Amino acid sequence: MSEMRFTAEQLPSVRRFTEALARRYKVSEGLIGDLVIAVNEIATNAVRHGSPHAELSMWTEDGSVIAEIHDSGTWTPADAPGGTPPPPEAEGGMGIWVARQICSAVNIRTGINGTVVRLELSPTARYI
Rank of each mutant, 00 (worst) to 15 (best):
S72N: 14
G111K: 02
W97F: 15
E19C: 06
Q10C: 04
T76Y: 08
H70L: 08
G111R: 01
R118N: 00
L35T: 00
W97I: 05
V14Y: 12
P87E: 09
R16I: 11
M94V: 12
T60I: 12
T115Q: 04
V27M: 14
T44L: 07
R15T: 06
S51V: 02
W59F: 14
A8I: 11
A90E: 12
W97H: 15
A105W: 00
Y25Q: 12
A8F: 14
W59K: 14
A43I: 11
Y127C: 02
T18S: 09
D71Q: 02
L56R: 01
S64A: 15
R15Y: 00
H49W: 13
I66W: 07
M4L: 15
P85E: 10
E61G: 00
V98D: 07
W75E: 01
I32C: 09
A20M: 06
E41R: 07
E41P: 06
R109Y: 04
S28C: 05
S51Q: 02
G33V: 07
T84E: 14
T44C: 07
Q101W: 01
G92E: 09
G83F: 02
V36E: 10
Q101E: 12
R24T: 15
L11Q: 10
N45S: 09
E3G: 04
V14E: 13
V117L: 03
W59A: 09
T60P: 05
M94F: 15
G30D: 14
S28H: 10
V65S: 05
R126G: 04
I37A: 14
A54Q: 01
G82E: 03
A105S: 10
H70E: 04
I96T: 11
G33F: 06
A20V: 08
E68L: 01
S57W: 04
M1H: 08
A20L: 10
A67G: 11
G95Q: 03
A38I: 05
Y127S: 06
V106D: 01
R100F: 01
A8T: 07
M1F: 06
T18R: 07
I112Q: 11
I37W: 06
T115R: 02
F17P: 05
V39Y: 07
V65D: 07
S72A: 14
R100T: 01
I108R: 01
T115N: 04
S72P: 01
M94P: 00
L56N: 00
V65N: 06
L21K: 14
T76F: 08
G95K: 03
L11F: 09
I32L: 10
D79C: 00
E89Q: 15
M58N: 04
S13K: 08
R100G: 01
G114F: 09
A20I: 05
S28F: 07
N45I: 04
A105H: 07
I102Y: 03
A90N: 10
T7L: 08
A38S: 08
T7A: 13
G73I: 06
G93E: 12
R48T: 12
R109G: 00
L121V: 04
L21H: 14
A67S: 15
